[in-house]
Each structure stands twice: as C-alpha cells, then as structure tokens.
C-alpha cells in the first residue's frame, strides 16, 4: 500500500484566549505527498513544533483543517488514538525525555509493532535498520547516549509502520557530528519504508541535505517554499536570505555570521 496524503489547509493555532492570545501558527497550507521528504525550517518560536503537535492531534486548531487521506484529524483526547491515525508517528526533540526510563528498549519498540497496520520486521530488524546492535532490546534507555536514544526513538516510530513520520527537531539536542548522520538516517529509513517525512529543524544546512522540498516558516507563516536546491541557491524571501546568511562556514576566517 502506498502512503496516504497529509494535507493542511489554512491551519491556525492559538495559545491563550481573548486579548492575550498568541497566534503560533497562522494559516499554514501544506501538502505531504507519499514518499516525499519535506523540510520545515525556521527559528525558535516560529511555530514549527506547534504545527507538528497539531498534525499529531496534540494541539486543537483555532482554524483551518488537517486531513489524512481526506479524513480530518480530531484532537487526541483521553481516548485511544484511532487506528488510522497511528499511521502518523513522531520523533521528539529530546531523546532523554522521549523514552520511558523504566522500560526495556525492546518492549517500547514492541508497543509500536503491536499497532502496525502492515507487517514490520522484528525488534532486532528494526534496531539493525537504525544501525543499533540487536542486543540493545534488553537494555534500558539510560544505558545509551543521546544519539543512540534518538535511533531507538526512530526505530520505535518506524515499528508502527507509519505512512507519515514527523521529526520535531530530532537533531537539535545532538552534537554537531551526529546531526547530519541522524538526519540522513531518518531520510533513508522513511524512504525504505514508503513513508513520507516532515523534518522540522532550525538548521537549514542539514535540512537541505535530506529534503526534497523546503518550507521556511517565520512568525507562524510559511514565507517561502520550493525545491531544496532552489531555496538554498536562490532564496526569494528576505527572511530566508537572513537564515542562510546566519549559517556559519568553517573556512577558518573567523567571521561572525549575519
């Protein structure tokens, strides 16, 4: 089965009520076709993570709609998440908080396998896929480093055989040498499993390496969208230009970006 399409139309999310309400996401349109890698970049506080939470049903919408394969995504209340929505999975920002410290890694990945709508590999297959040793299954999260934990979190998300994988700043808390490795791992894993990937990051340089399409978000709006190389080489929006100029270059000249 080919993955379903995730569609966002005029999505608006507000925090708070009345005069003090803050609009975190202001009318975002977005389409995530099957097998596509979409990068969403923007500075802290621009609404990227709120958007990710809204797609998972964790944030009620103030306007617009989000649909998966044509059907709307209701907010996740106290009920069990409906089976069709289990096809959207997320990898969180902080690998130190996103794994249950009291359960073995294998059991946590098994939770995902149990709800998968199509056959997935065994726990050791999944661990191997994220370049972890199969013996990790019998150990607890605190025995692993941040990068390893993020791999485990990716394996757990992939265990549910998602059509749509969301990475909510999955590389932000990793050290620089790991960032692009984890990012390309997510891309490879998603493509191998026919899933599309919405990769959220503030690091345009890393996103450019893995994404087909790049969306630039600023104060709740999408200010620029286009093929990755076009956005990188010929940015249209002034904000994107500023973002690009802020990327440090390791050329030994000691320039301060910006």
């Amino acid at each position: 089965m080919m993955g379903a399409i995730l569609q966002l139309d005029g999505v608006t999310v507000r925090y708070g009520r009345g005069a003090s309400a803050v609009t975190a996401v202001a009318g975002v349109d977005l389409e995530l076709p099957p097998g596509q890698i979409v990068g969403l970049v923007g500075e802290s506080g621009c609404g990227k993570s709120t958007l990710a939470r809204a797609i998972c049903g964790l944030q009620p919408l103030a306007g617009g709609r989000i649909t998966l394969a044509g059907e709307p995504i209701p907010p996740l209340g106290h009920r069990r998440r409906p089976a069709r929505l289990l096809r959207i999975q997320m990898v969180f920002q902080n690998p130190y908080a996103s794994l249950n410290p009291r359960r073995r890694v294998g059991d946590q990945i098994e939770d995902g396998r149990r709800v998968a709508t199509r056959p997935v590999g065994s726990v050791s297959d999944l661990l191997t896929e994220v370049e972890m040793d199969a013996s990790a299954a019998d150990r607890f999260p605190h025995e692993f480093s941040g990068g390893q934990r993020q791999r485990i979190a990716i394996a757990r998300a992939m265990a549910a055989a998602p059509d749509i994988l969301i990475g909510d700043e999955p590389i932000a808390s990793l050290d620089a040498s790991l960032q692009s490795r984890i990012a390309s791992l997510m891309r490879d894993v998603a493509l191998r499993n026919d899933a599309s990937l919405l990769f959220i990051s503030h690091d345009l340089a890393v996103v450019r390496e893995i994404a087909d399409t790049i969306l630039v978000m600023h104060t709740g709006h999408i200010v620029e969208r286009g093929p990755a190389e076009r956005v990188w080489a010929a940015p249209q929006d002034p904000y994107t230009r500023r973002l690009l100029a802020a990327i440090p270059i390791a050329d030994g000249l000691g320039r301060i970006p910006g």
């Binding site: 998972c56 964790l58 996740l76 106290h78 009920r79 069990r80 998440r81 089976a83 289990l86 959207i88 999975q89 997320m90 969180f92 920002q93 902080n94 908080a97 996103s98 794994l99 249950n100 410290p101 939770d111 995902g112 149990r114 709800v115 979190a153 757990r156 549910a160």
Partner: peptide, 15 residues
C-alpha cells in the same frame, strides 16, 4: 506531559 507518555499515546496506548 512527559514526552515518553505522549509518545506512548501516539503509539496507540489508551488511558
């Protein structure tokens, strides 16, 4: 509100 609880909910855990 810990992320691992949210992650569990996203993986289909009921209350």
């Amino acid at each position: 509100n810990q992320e691992y609880v949210v992650a569990g909910r996203l993986l289909g855990a009921g209350p």
